[in-house]
């Protein structure tokens, strides 16, 4: 089930994009089902303490990407097909490292250095 209580907003990304990413991540890790309904704009605004227009903006983007559909006279639901799932998968796996690799190259790091750094950071997270 989509549980927006689990969405902790950060102060560094546009809020509507954080909502969109959250929904995509839930689809990717399998915690949301096809046809599940979305909370109302107002519920979301209250829960996340944000402007209902920001919620609207996120829903619109999700609609454009085909992830949210609103049948006539019904509430909006979550929907995806293979093509959408593949796009989400790509974004949350390979897409994740695109910027990172570009920055690492700009800093003239070698692949070995990056791998070592990655390993350190990864394991640091596990200790917590």
């Amino acid at each position: 089930m989509l549980d927006f209580k689990k969405l902790e907003l950060n102060p560094s990304e546009p809020v509507y994009l954080q909502i969109v990413s959250f929904v995509k991540r839930q689809i990717f890790i399998g915690t949301v089902e096809q046809g599940e309904s979305l909370p109302s704009r107002r519920e979301m605004a209250a829960l996340l303490k944000i402007n209902p227009n920001t919620v609207q903006k996120a829903f619109r983007l999700l609609e454009e990407e085909g992830i949210v559909v609103t049948p006539p006279n019904a509430v909006s639901i979550i929907h995806w097909d293979e093509e959408i799932y593949a796009a989400i998968q790509k974004e949350l796996t390979a897409g994740l490292v695109v910027d990172f690799v570009a920055q690492a190259k700009a800093n003239e790091l070698t692949l070995d250095m990056v791998m070592a750094l990655l390993k350190d950071e990864w394991e640091k997270g596990d200790e917590r």
Partner: peptide, 14 residues
């Protein structure tokens, strides 16, 4: 503050 922000955000129509 949290209650207040939720009441405020939840009472808006946009």
């Amino acid at each position: 503050r949290q209650d207040f922000m939720q009441a405020l955000a939840g009472s808006l129509t946009g």
